[in-house]
Design a protein around this nucleic acid. Sequence first.
DNA 1: TCTATCTGTGAACAACTGTTCATAGATAGA
DNA 2: TCTATCTATGAACAGTTGTTCACAGATAGA
Lengths: 127, 127
Amino acid sequence: MVEPVAIDGCELKLVDPARVRAVQQAMPDEETVAELASIFSLLSDPSRLRLLSVLLEGGEMCVCDLAAAAGMGESATSHALRLLRLHQVVKARRAGRMMHYSLRDGHVRMLMDVALVHVHHGLGEAD
Amino acid sequence: MVEPVAIDGCELKLVDPARVRAVQQAMPDEETVAELASIFSLLSDPSRLRLLSVLLEGGEMCVCDLAAAAGMGESATSHALRLLRLHQVVKARRAGRMMHYSLRDGHVRMLMDVALVHVHHGLGEAD
DNA sequence: TCTATCTGTGAACAACTGTTCATAGATAGA
DNA sequence: TCTATCTATGAACAGTTGTTCACAGATAGA
């Protein structure tokens, strides 16, 4: 029933080769996929999520307050904020010896809201 | 300028203790944070993102076609689909000896779209 | 029942990640 | 300039993750 088909130079057994080829052509390029993975990876850590929650609720804050509110050490907080800044999720402002961090745009809130809906919608349902 | 303040039984130096306390009370509980991290973690892997892209574009498909379209081995594909199914992201339907997988709802597309907007919006901007 | 085919699972391995510790950089005030 | 304070960085360690390999389960057809 499953016919052997040559695809990408390799011989594979496929059920619907035409659909496979069509889907492959419509797929985003590797760079885009990698960037998406990067963004989601940033949001996949509880500590970073807590930091972002704090920034969503409290607005601009210094590292020591962020650390205390998120229940983290200050070094871990600094490492996390550096990552978030490198990926354009937060921005930093210096005021004297203190650094103040804030969210860069509203996408984070949207992402967290959609994910929350999914979490609460899928509870208790079987496959 | 920064006053030592007792919080959670530990003495810490904070700039704005009132705001820290307010933010802490508004923060989602640990379980919710962990569930959010779980969902984002599923989307943080390029292989799983490709699989989801394929399902978004092609609809319901069997494991061998999914593997071919996403450019993965069939075992890796099966492992990935199992994870996605355990977290209610995809659902499975058996037809003979073949398993057909499909997306469970539209949240995945929303999440990917919002993340894409962020990726393209933030390109080339400095901090 | 026996076999071929499609998919699922467990173990093992390398690669990656987040935290901590120690230390360095940067700034304000004396 | 010297010191105290706040933040950033580098190294190292444990913990986690994704893939592959080998094999097991499940189903259709002979």
